[in-house]
Amino acid sequence: MNELISMGGYAPFIWSAYGFFFITIITLFIINFLRLKKREEVLNKINNNRD
């Protein structure tokens, strides 16, 4: 386990690279997902008003 964390002395580089990668793609996903939900809400509101 310790070996995994220390990464042969390259821990700061590896963990920051992997961290950056995952934080960025998760943020990208969440932002787009929220945008989609917002659009769906607006569409529902319009449809309800019509009825």
Partner: peptide, 17 residues
């Protein structure tokens, strides 16, 4: 990529990036 693969013989673990 983090556990199952060997480190590079020149670059060591840094090549996992």
């Amino acid at each position: 990529s983090l556990l199952q693969s060997p480190p590079d013989y020149i670059q060591g673990d840094s090549m996992r990036i």
